[in-house]
Write a protein that binds this DNA or RNA. Structure first.
Lengths: 188, 188
DNA sequence: CCGGTTTGGTTGAATGACCAATCAATGTCC
DNA sequence: GGACATTGATTGGTCATTCAACCAAACCGG
């Protein structure tokens, strides 16, 4: 039952990390939560960092979206809204790891690849929307960068500030993104 | 020379934090960098967390912007560009502390207030731009939330991914923000 | 002008705790 | 009997925080 234990550890790690945060979480606590011996955690994951990266992948598989198409962009924003409401624990872990990644040689590359793939996903959506309007696809990359950035920033605000109006922000983002499609950007 | 030592400690703390990151930084190292005894750090700052919060305030005073007005919005985006290039250390600390704040009762409120005040600052600019166009000021709050969010997200990408094109993203953000002023958002 | 005293600043060693990672030993299934 | 899975004690550190002692300068009564 190897794959089973592996997953048990991942799930336990996520639980403890969500409750206590990265730097207040010890391998010992994760092992206890999973009901296994401390050494077993290191048997499956060479270091705490690799474990945490695996946890990030593990919990983000569940959140993955799969939208494309015309009104699909609007659909994607709607999904973003519920994601911001319902995956708070996952998002919280994500933000934390971004912070850690800035000074950790293992987590750094892992998070960077993660961020890239998300942005590229958004870029594809942007490209499709632009194609449907028969507009120049060039600004897609810049727009995707901004949209990803905005979603992350909204995520941060909704986690940090309980009074922040998340839906309002996502609506504003949707409006800004779509209006940008009509008025081409002035080049620097 | 009390205020002097205080500042020496803050500066040293920033140096070490920038080099090593929050969780790899010990009070001992900060004291060494400042050339004082370990105990002195706790004499001025009751805990590591309060010290780090003070550092954030200390380094952000230097970055503060003071722009308003018509083309002032464009000016603000230009300033944002150079801020993203030149204050990387400060930004890195900021992002890290956001992550830590999610599970720290001392740093949490500190960062939250920080984020709020920044967003309010942007909201004022947005309100002025809308006023000049004689448009409805209602969407200012939502727009400000998105603009702050986007700047933070761009900051993250530029720190995490060396291949990220920061200027392109800021240009796209400027274009999106300004075009949003003309086409009012559809309400949910 | 001068002893003594208070006060604020400063020291560095000691405390008590915690942790990631290792490893030899044990168990379990084929 | 061998490979994989699991144990938990051990190792070698690290850390934030506390504390008793030390120092110097300002202060004050005489």
């Amino acid at each position: 039952m190897s794959g089973d234990t592996r997953e048990k550890i991942l799930q336990a790690a996520f639980t403890v990390l969500s409750r206590q945060g990265y730097e207040n979480t010890s391998i010992k606590e994760i092992a206890e939560e999973a009901g296994v011996a401390q050494g077993l955690v290191h048997y499956y994951y060479k270091s705490k960092q690799q474990l945490v990266l695996a946890v990030l992948e593990f919990v983000c598989k569940k959140v993955e979206l799969g939208v494309v198409g015309e009104a699909g962009a609007l659909e994607a924003f709607a999904q973003t809204k519920t994601m911001l409401k319902e995956s708070r624990d996952t998002n919280s872990l994500y933000i934390q790891l971004i912070g850690v990644s800035l000074h950790d040689p293992v987590i750094g590359p892992g998070v960077r690849d993660f961020v890239r793939s998300e942005r590229i996903h958004i870029e594809e959506i942007a490209r499709q929307v632009l194609a449907e309007r028969e507009a120049d696809p060039t600004p897609a990359r810049g727009i995707a960068g901004v949209v990803w950035a905005a979603i992350l920033g909204i995520m941060v605000q909704s986690l940090v500030d309980p009074e922040f109006d998340t839906d309002e922000a996502v609506d504003a983002l949707a409006a800004m993104s779509l209006s940008a499609v009509f008025t081409p950007a002035p080049s620097a």
